[in-house]
Design a binder for these strands. Structure first.
Lengths: 258, 258
DNA sequence: CGTGATAAG
DNA sequence: CTTAACACG
């Protein structure tokens, strides 16, 4: 089963840049999208029909602000996933952040983790989000579920996960607080699958600022991740960063389970 | 002496669409621009230097709102025009609307007349503007000046001046009030030069909505005009609408005096 | 620097 | 439909 996650930075934008070609070539079983930045009805009708013919679609836009944030999860119909919108906390759910999907004992949580923002003005919001989400993961583990947590986590966990760690200690995405909170997910029994399998490999990034040719020079950050329950690790066949896929300032990532 | 007027709908935009080529080919003696929508310093430095080497430049952006309205007048240096910004009324002058230029007894008034706006919310503002401007023209005539008044007047004077008069009687630019106020300029001793020389010629338009191929089908309005003192008429060699010049939703117009 | 909302025309 | 400002990333 092949899981994908991609922050598309505007679903309508990425549709103009070959998203449907990518989808048809890639045929993910489960796909989490972030920063969809539109209502489902605002996307091209032919596209919607084509996607709906193959996938159970959960579209979860922000209600708090038009064109802001929002997440979606598509799961191949034959897999029988059920989708649930939100974490049950109005503050996050109004921004269309997280979707919880389930098949039997497998819980797939995908979405768009808060950005701490300029001046770290949303750091408190982001910290509370991390606590609540880690608690949810623990609850699922206590209930005997296995969990995949993915999306744009808006944090690079370690120095190796960004090209310029020294320059970014005070910047959103690499503050000590955000890195500390990332460990809450690990403490809840999840593993950063790509880093587990590629310890000490530098240059593995999923996001590059649009300013000044950063992507060409691979001056990036690894902030899109697959975390999985430790008990799932022996089923991991592969996990990858698809840096060659263009269309957004983020690239897709994937996790394949046996 | 060749006078031009052009609503460029953003000076920086029209610069990207060949404005400088047009300027070099056309070499107007005096040029009034409307909807410049930027500060002079925001335009390309090479462009500014090139223009300033040939013209006395009067740049009059709105101070009330960034990127809104604004007018400019360029006059060939050797002609010795002097420029004055505004009509002396804060309400109009904060929007960078009118520039009064003079050489001896010739007064050239160019600029961007108010749009009555959706719901005609600015009709009262526009009516006061018309009264004040007509009074200024009368004052100049009383002092023995000859006047050229030009720009985007945001009114089609007569049914012949727009493609769909019946559909637009309640719309900004063709209300009875705006047409009535247009007659104030005529009452002040000015003549609509193009219509004077081309009575009953339909299809002479200077603006076309960007929506739905209106320009290709010549579904337009004549709202950019040269009005001139009746005493100037025997010096009029030519007046034209340059509908072939692209780059804005308006086209340039010209008046040539002997 | 790019996406999208918004105001204005 | 287009320009430009703005918010956000």
């Amino acid at each position: 089963m092949r899981f994908y996650s991609w922050n598309v930075n505007g679903f309508r934008s990425v549709l103009k840049k070959g998203f449907m070609d990518w989808l048809e070539e890639t045929e993910p079983d489960v796909l989490s999208l972030q920063e969809i930045r539109c209502e489902w009805e605002e996307a091209d009708l032919g596209v919607r029909r084509q996607i709906e013919s193959a996938y159970d679609v959960c579209w979860f836009p922000a209600t708090s602000k038009k064109g802001y944030a929002g997440a979606a999860t598509f799961a191949k119909k034959e897999l029988g996933f059920t989708h649930a919108k939100g974490l049950g906390v109005d503050g996050y759910d109004a921004e269309g952040r997280m979707i919880v999907s389930r098949r039997d004992k497998l819980v797939f949580i995908g979405g768009y983790f808060p950005n701490a923002s300029q001046g770290l003005v949303r750091l408190p919001f982001k910290r509370q989000f991390a606590r609540d989400l880690a608690a949810l993961v623990m609850k699922h583990h206590a209930a005997g579920d296995q969990v995949i947590l993915t999306g744009d986590m808006n944090v690079a966990p370690e120095e190796i996960d960004l090209a310029r760690p020294k320059d970014n200690v005070k910047n959103p995405g690499f503050t000590p607080e955000e890195r500390e909170d990332f460990k809450l997910y690990l403490g809840a029994g999840l593993v950063d699958v790509l880093r587990e399998r590629n310890p000490a490999v530098p240059g593995l990034y999923t996001w590059w600022t649009a300013r000044g040719g950063a992507r060409e020079r691979n001056v990036g950050w690894r902030i899109d991740l697959f975390l999985a329950s430790r008990t799932l690790l022996d089923r991991v066949k592969d996990t990858r960063i698809h840096a060659e896929v263009l269309g957004s300032d983020h690239c897709p990532i994937s996790l394949e389970l046996l």
